[in-house]
Design a protein around this nucleic acid. Structure first.
Lengths: 108, 108
DNA sequence: TTGTGGTGCAACCTTTTGGTTGCGCATCTG
DNA sequence: CAGATGCGCAACCAAAAGGTTGCACCACAA
């Protein structure tokens, strides 16, 4: 039951603004909340909260640099989400396969 | 910006109870809200709301059968989530690769 | 030293979540 | 038919999400 990490990752990805931040961070290397707020239709404070959610999920890390805080992508935790999805899809395929064989070879 | 489907899928997966429902539905083929409420520490009504979220994401479908409503897994939309994660991870790897080559071959 | 730009923190507000209880209706069963 | 059983709808509630504004503070530049 202790997959709070998974909770946080899926939660972080459930918001389009946050997914957009992730995508921007692939090409931009590092970014500040103020910069993001320039591109997005929301306040710097709102951006800041979204970044906090991403940091909480471990998807982003921020470090202060002089008077600004730069955030960079740390996409490791995406693997946890990928893995979960992979297991589910694999088990589902397994079930279908078992069902198919059951029909082909006949029951019993 | 029209990936509301993705919103719904990630949102549905962000809750441990809902993930648990998905997992149960792999081995059980179909289930009712009342059955789930028997296993889980919450009310049938709460389960019902979780199922509504899963239905909204297209991950589960329910159809009435006599006096009970049976829910079965329809995991198709998981592909959208997988695909999104795949693209992000691929682009990230691409960025790292480009960076590595940049260092190896020397800048310019 | 006096601005100025960038942050973080806190208060506040509205909407959504996740949960509950209560009820009425439909559907099987004895 | 008379109970059970299962469901959906609605009301209600506390807490969290997502957003805003205001403010104090720190770092840098003139």
């Amino acid at each position: 039951m202790g997959d709070e990490r998974l909770d946080a990752v899926f939660f972080a990805l459930a918001d389009p603004t946050r997914r957009s931040v992730v995508r921007r961070l692939i090409s931009r290397e590092s970014v500040t909340a103020t910069q993001l707020a320039g591109d997005l239709p929301i306040t710097r404070q709102a951006v800041s909260k979204h970044l906090a959610a991403l940091v909480d999920a471990g998807l982003v890390a921020g470090h202060r640099e002089g008077r600004e805080t730069r955030y960079r992508l740390t996409p490791g935790p995406l693997d946890a989400a990928s893995a979960w999805l992979g297991v589910i899809e694999a088990q589902w395929d397994g079930r279908l396969e078992r069902l198919r064989r059951h029909v082909e070879d006949g029951p019993r």
